[in-house]
Every structure is written in C-alpha cells, then in structure tokens.
Nucleic acid binder design. Structure first.
Lengths: 124, 124
DNA sequence: AATATTAATGCGACTTTGTTGCAATAATAA
DNA sequence: TTATTATTGCAACAAAGTCGCATTAATATT
C-alpha cells in the first residue's frame, strides 16, 4: 500500500517533530494546525508507527502517547530505554538512559516498557 | 470510613492470594467464586489499593492489573522493581529485581513503572 | 434479639480511549 | 484529463472504568 502525502499527516508529523515529546491523541488533536477527525488522527499515528517513523508508549494512565523519537531512530522496538512522563504538562520524553535488567530462567522477554513519572524541568 | 467484611471482598482477596500474579478486572470477574457486579469489583480493588493490600499495574495494553504483591508487602509505591507480563496467560508478576536508574538534572521522579513482557516459564 | 447506622452492592447511565465499516473525497499514476 | 485507490469523515461500536442513587446488608447500639 503506497503512502500519500496529506495535510493531516503533514500536520501531525510537524507537530510531533516540533515537540520533542510524546503526545496523546488528545493533545495532538488540540494543538494540530488542521482540522482532523479523531479516527483520522489515530489512523495517521498508527500508520506512522507501522512505518517506524513514530513510536507509541502507553503510560500508567492507560493512554497511548506518540513521539518522533530522536534518540532511537530506526529501532523497531524503541523502548529499551527509560521514558519520562511529566504529569503536569502531560507529555512523555525519551531519556537517553538504557534499561538494564536480568531475568530468571524461563522468561522470554519480547518488549520492555520502563516509564518514570513526575515533573520535568520545564514544570518545576 | 470503617471497612466491612463482605463476600465480594473475601472472594477477590482469596483469588488474588492464590494466584501469585496480577490479574485484570476481567479475569477476576471470570474466575471469582461469587457473583459480583463490575462496579463492585472495581470498588473492592480500588479500596484494597488504597489500603495498601493490593497494588495496581497498568500494562502496555492500557489495562489495569491488580495483585497482592508478596515481595513488596507494605511498600506504598511498590513499583520500583520490574514486573513481567506474560502475553499468553495474560497475567503480571513481580520480579524480584529492582530498577536502577539515574536521571538528568531537574526531573523529579514520583513513580516508577517498569514492565517487561513476553512469555513466562509456565507458557513456554 | 431488635434496631439503628452507614458501608457495600447492583443497576444503569455515562465517560474516555480507541477501532472499524462504509461511502465520499482527494492524492497520485496513467 | 481520467482512472485508481489511499485517505478521510461520519457514525456506530467496543472495552475499560467511573459514578450517582436507591437498596441491601454488615456492624454497632440498645
């Protein structure tokens, strides 16, 4: 399926690129420059995820956050480092720090999701 | 507010104690020995959380999982160690291993949520 | 043991987050 | 300029949780 360039896609990607942080659908819809339907935004975001342009983090609030992750460009599973969620400005950013762990015998790890939360420097 | 001993509470706590793992509301409702309304189960679980008897983990699927955590008994914020979610049997368990990290200046960490996922020994 | 107090329950309605089917629209290719 | 089909909007839907309110039932009181 070939991809087409559309206003919605451009706007979402622009917004996500400007912010360095992961945003919820909600925040994206509010701050985006174009009017776009909720479904459209989700579809655009999911497509970006599929294409590896954007990645998705699920926070302790159960919501999905999307970001153009700068540090982990290209990684298919970009969650092996810590993320930080600021509960004040409600965004998530990648921290450079990698996650280290060792697990007991018999466990097969397919995904790593490490999220710290609190307040970020901008909100202190 | 004083707490009362009710069938629903006993059943939930019994189930959660038998399993060593965190279960979703859904799983609890299915496996519980008593009939209980969805709202009731959630209220019971949340009350247990408030009382520090049970704790809650939110997984990458965005759902809440509840467990009587054996290792972190008494801890108010019991998430400073890794959790493991088995995507086959759909339960979460506490791994003993603690989470170590250092964060850049200016960040104030209030909560730690580290979840590995894959398949557990029982499901391999 | 009978009664009063109020925590706990069930029900239904509601919210939020996210997805999906379908017809209409609009990028791209021809 | 037209044909192709990716994308969009809309509405409906689904799942996870929460909440208000009247009813029920633990506990305390007499």
């Amino acid at each position: 399926m070939k991809r087409r360039k559309t206003p919605a896609k451009e706007a979402v990607l622009k917004l996500l690129s400007q912010r360095q942080k992961a945003m919820s659908h909600d925040a994206i819809e509010q701050e985006i420059e174009v009017d776009a339907n909720r479904a459209t935004i989700y579809r655009v975001l999911n497509q970006f995820c599929d294409d590896g342009i954007v990645h998705k983090v699920v926070a302790e609030d159960g919501k999905q956050y999307f970001a153009v992750c700068m540090d982990c460009k290209g990684e298919k599973i970009p969650n092996h480092h810590f993320h930080f969620r600021c509960t004040t400005c409600d965004t998530i950013e990648c921290l450079g720090e990698s996650v280290h762990f060792s697990i007991p015998e018999g466990y097969r790890v397919k995904d790593v999701n490490c999220l710290l939360s609190g307040t970020c420097p901008d909100c202190t």
